[in-house]
Design a protein around this nucleic acid. Structure first.
Lengths: 108, 108
DNA sequence: CCCCTTCGGTCTGTATTGCAAACCAGAGGT
DNA sequence: ACCTCTGGTTTGCAATACAGACCGAAGGGG
């Protein structure tokens, strides 16, 4: 019943944030990726990437595996739920955009 | 040359932020709106709306007119440049989404 | 005439965030 | 033994986002 704008204001910041949108969208295409690969394709600094991954992990959007076989290696992938969350987010954006364009004030 | 993900991470936060995306998208349809109208359709608190408007104004995205004719009234509208900025932002999102889906690692 | 409530916003305080630079640990080279 | 390169984590800080307190002006009742 809300306006599309109300819905926009309510968007999930966890995945909407630009850096995280980049990370999660990359994972949507890549299925699984390691730390340095993500750093290369997103252009984020190590520290920044690390903290965003922690947040995504805490939110259950991605899973992180650390293996110390040979050199340390951190592998990241979307959880099943995370995959749904991310693609739903894009869907929502597209729909809200259309709804916003079509909207006219019902109270006017 | 950059990956779509690099571009995503670089998105303009001024208009990408959910509340501001709501406000600016509303103005895209509405041409001009006053404070309370924006508050109703976005569902934001007064304080929050006020500070977002200040930021948009500082960024040159919206223009704010305060008239004290009768009761105080604040009228907000997109600047010409702001209108371009906002619709370009949506365009960019849509294109990035498609580019991300189509992307495969050129270094693999 | 004075109170007092409502309208229309702005200002203040605070908890959270995003970011980069400093730091740290292990594996090789020399 | 020492330096250094890889692969990340933790710390420190500036900027947010948000809501609730605040404030001035306009109208209504007594």
């Amino acid at each position: 019943m809300g306006t599309p704008f109300e819905d926009m204001a309510d968007i999930d910041r966890l995945v909407h944030e630009p850096a995280r949108l980049a990370i999660t969208s990359a994972l949507l295409s890549c299925e699984s990726a390691d730390f340095l690969f993500l750093q290369r394709i997103t252009g984020l600094s190590k520290g920044n990437l690390s903290s965003h991954l922690s947040k995504l992990s805490a939110g259950g959007v991605v899973g992180i595996e650390k293996s110390t076989d040979g050199r340390p290696r951190t592998t990241v992938r979307l959880t099943p739920g995370g995959r749904v969350t991310v693609s739903a987010h894009w869907d929502r954006l597209l729909r809200l955009h259309e709804a916003a364009e079509a909207w006219t004030d019902p109270g006017a």
